[in-house]
Amino acid sequence: MARYGMVFDLKRCIGCNACVIGCKQENSLPDGVFFTRTLSEEYGVYPAVNRVYIPTLCNHCEDAPCEKVCPSGATYTRPDGIVMVDPQKCIGCGSCAVACPYDQRSEMKAEAFKDGLFGTGELTDFEKQGYPRYTPGMVTKCDFCSGRVDAGLDPACVVTCPTDARIFGDLDDPNSKPSKLIRERGGKSPLPEKNTRPKVYYID
């Protein structure tokens, strides 16, 4: 069984946010909800100033704190390591949201489903086909586009990235692209002191 993970090559990310748009389209996300973000950090003093882009999404932690605190059993980990949220079981208590050190949970506010993307109260065809996969009020997150992964495809953010800064694959396969990159360029985990063992790595 595969153990899926992702590598972000920070040398390649140009901060275009195409991944963010690809994710929103794939997952039909309501206004203000993002499963992935590309954060920017500026540092240094003029004229020696630098800017780095840091893509983020759910880290699908091996020791997922969101799963441990979920009182309803809605959050669970698939055998391939993808951490999922069952929309039928989620009660929207938000305990997963305050337990995730990476702030990667999103509230699917009920109003967003009623108002629609344009705030007119009328849903577009795009919204009509996408929203039924969520329960209004639930708290959810990135699932590595599990439907695409099951079909043998890469997640939407990976295929949308124009610079190949996002590399997805099986971390248990030593010959997979992410495994090689982590081995050769030393993948860093986000907030390792939180002991969540993320399956997303950063290389620079």
Binding site: P71, S72, G73, A74, K89, C90, I91, G92, C93, G94, E107, M108, K109, A110, T135, P136, G137, M138, V139
Partner: peptide, 11 residues
């Protein structure tokens, strides 16, 4: 506070 109060019993 609950997003889906009708399912609160599941907690």
């Amino acid at each position: 506070h609950m997003g889906v109060p009708q399912k609160s019993w599941r907690a």
